[in-house]
Amino acid sequence: MRVSLFGATGSTGVELLRRLTATATVRCLVRSPEKLPEERRIGDLRQHPAVELIAGSSTDAAAVQEACADAEAVIVSLGGPPRGPGVDVCSTSQRLINEALNSSDGRAARVVCISSIGVGDHYQHCSLFAKFFASWIIPEALADKHLQEEMVRSLKNWVVVRPGGLLDSPGLRAWHAAEDACGFYPTIPRADVAAFVVQECLPPEERWLRRNVALVSRKPQGWFNWKS
């Protein structure tokens, strides 16, 4: 499979790249290729034969067009600051991704957007703690994620994944995936988000096609970092 990955140098993006290299060729649009780590198990990701790096920004139309060319699946794992300059990076980038796919043969590509719990209609399913965090700590960032989700759902084939608070701890392989998944203190390791996306959201899997799915750990633990 040919996969385009946006946000590959982020913590969740690196977890995705680790898993994708086993089953796909991955084209990554990255601003700073040097941020990709050297993996003990699979070697330097910058030199991996299954990885193609394109130096550029997800807010540059030409670079996004190149990154999306011939992709069978596009994974968008972008995140920005909680407020201020750059908080609109997700919606700005998604608009360009949509334009790139709609102007080429990429209309049928599966687009998997990694969003967040508390976005859009999921807010009603959140615990009081999650609602407080969404409404008072990162409202601008989640508002931008909401715009991004709306753009994704205008495409032909899409999946919106809404993970809980992202942890850097090892994966537990014990997640709860449902449209209304949450819990009082909803968290999930990034490794489990990556495993879920690769196993359950990419072609030929269709369970979550054209659906929003929230994803939380069955064993909540630790404090989290909301960024992708």
Rank of each mutant, 00 (worst) to 15 (best):
L166E: 08
E38T: 15
Q199I: 03
T187Q: 04
W223S: 14
N102P: 10
V112P: 03
A71L: 01
V89F: 02
S116I: 03
G165H: 02
T59M: 10
I54N: 02
V160F: 10
V193T: 08
E206L: 11
W158R: 02
E39N: 10
K131R: 15
P82I: 01
P85L: 02
D44Q: 04
Y123T: 12
R190M: 10
V197E: 08
P204H: 08
K156C: 13
T59W: 10
R162T: 11
H125I: 02
A69W: 09
G118T: 03
R18Y: 11
R2I: 14
L53R: 01
L215Y: 02
A143F: 06
A130I: 07
G84N: 04
L36E: 01
I42G: 05
M151V: 13
F184R: 14
V30T: 03
N102F: 14
V119T: 04
P163D: 00
H176E: 12
I75S: 01
S169C: 13
A61N: 08
H48E: 08
K227P: 13
L101Q: 02
F184C: 10
R40W: 13
L167W: 03
P203A: 05
A55F: 14
R211L: 12
Q148F: 02
A177Q: 03
S116R: 05
A50L: 10
A214K: 10
K131L: 05
A177F: 03
L172F: 11
E99G: 12
V198I: 01
Q65D: 15
V51S: 04
F133T: 10
E205N: 11
C113D: 15
T92C: 13
V26Q: 00
Q94E: 13
S127C: 01
E149P: 06
G86V: 06
C68N: 05
K35W: 09
S217W: 09
T23I: 12
C28Q: 04
G56A: 01
Q47V: 12
W223A: 15
L29W: 00
Q221E: 15
T12N: 07
P33R: 01
E72A: 11
G118L: 04
D192N: 06
T12Q: 07
L45F: 08
K145E: 09
R173G: 11
I138D: 02
L16E: 04
P203D: 03
V197W: 01
A181M: 03
T9E: 07
W158K: 05
C201S: 00
S58T: 14
W223N: 14
S11F: 09
L78V: 04
E38L: 12
L16R: 02
A134T: 02
E52Q: 15
W223V: 12
L147G: 06
H176S: 13
A8Y: 01
P33D: 00
I54M: 05
G106S: 07
L128H: 14
A67T: 05
I117Y: 08
S77P: 12
W136R: 15
R173E: 12
I54Q: 04
Q221H: 13
R218E: 13
S127I: 00
T92R: 13
E34W: 11
A109E: 07
V14G: 01
P203V: 00
E38C: 15
S103E: 07
H176R: 15
A108Y: 14
A141C: 09
A214I: 06
K145T: 08
H122V: 03
R110K: 04
L166C: 07
C68W: 08
L96I: 08
